[in-house]
Amino acid sequence: MPSLPPIRPEDEAVAKVRGNTGAFDAPPVAEEDRVRFDYLLRLGDDSLILGQRLSEYCGHAPSVEVDLSLANMGLDLIGQATHFLEYASKVEGAGRDGDALAFRRDVLDFRNCWLVEQPNGDFAQTMARQFLFSTWQKLLFGQLTASADEMIAAIAAKAVKEVTYHEELSAEWVIRLGDGTDESRRRMKEGLDWNWRFIPELFEMDEIAAEMTSRGIGADVGSFREEYDRKVRAVIEQATLEVPSDQRPILGGRRGHHSENLGHILAPMQYLQRTYPDATW
C-alpha cells in the first residue's frame, strides 16, 4: 500500500484557518454531487484497475497476438477510466483532475469491485475474470446509455462497443480452454472457481447505487441479474464445464474494503506521480 505523504507545516496552517470542518483538502461538496462522485469512482475505478491488471501482461502473454489483444483491452479500459474520472473530478469540484484521482488517491479511497483487482494467475484465470466482468459491464453500460446524466450516457455509449468485443473474445477463450486439452480444461475450471465468489458484489445495491438508480442516473443491476446468469451459464456449458457452485460472497470494494492485491497494483501504478508530482515528459 503506498504511504501517505507527510503533513507539512503549511498544511497544518491551512487546516487551522479552515477550522475542523472535515474540509482539509477540499471544499465541501453538495450531498447530491457527493453521491454522484462516489458512483463515478465505482465506474472509473473498475475500468482503471482492470486496465492496469491487463497491462501487466505486456510482453508476457502466450503469443504475440494474445499479447496485443490483452493490451488493446487494457487500453480500452484505461480510456473509459479517463472519461469517468475526469468527469468525477468535475463533479467533485475540488481542484483535482482525473489524473490526480487515478495516481494520488490512496488505496482505501478506491471504489472498484473485488473482481477486477484479482491476480492475473495464468491465462485461463485472466480470461475467466475478463469474461465474468465484461459480460456484466456490457449489460451495465447498455443500461447506462439511457442514464439521465448525459455525460455518463455518452461515455457508456462509446464504451459499450469496446466491451462487447471484450465479452466476445473472452467468451471464445473460456469455451476453447474449457473444451480443450486436459490441462487447459483444468486451468479454466480453476480460473472460474477462483473468480466465482466475486460475482455477487457486482449486483450489490447499497444506498449509493439505489439513490443513483432512483434518480435515473445509475443502473439497476438487479434487473439484468437473470440475463447475466443465463449468458454466463450458456458459455460455461458450451465450454463443457460445470457451473461452479456458489461460494460465500465477498463484498466491500464499493466502500473501500479491498484485498491485499489492490495496494500491490497501486504501488507501481502510482509510484511516478507520487515520487515526482506533476512530472511530464
Binding site: 504475440v64 497476438e65 494474445v66 489483444s69 476453447r176
Partner: peptide, 19 residues
C-alpha cells in the same frame, strides 16, 4: 497471425492489424 481456429484468427487479426 497464429490462431487455433478461424474465429480466433479473425479476432487476433483485428487486434493485430486494425487497431
Amino acid at each position: 497471425v497464429h490462431a487455433p481456429d478461424a474465429e480466433i484468427a479473425v479476432r487476433h487479426a483485428r487486434d493485430t492489424y486494425t487497431r
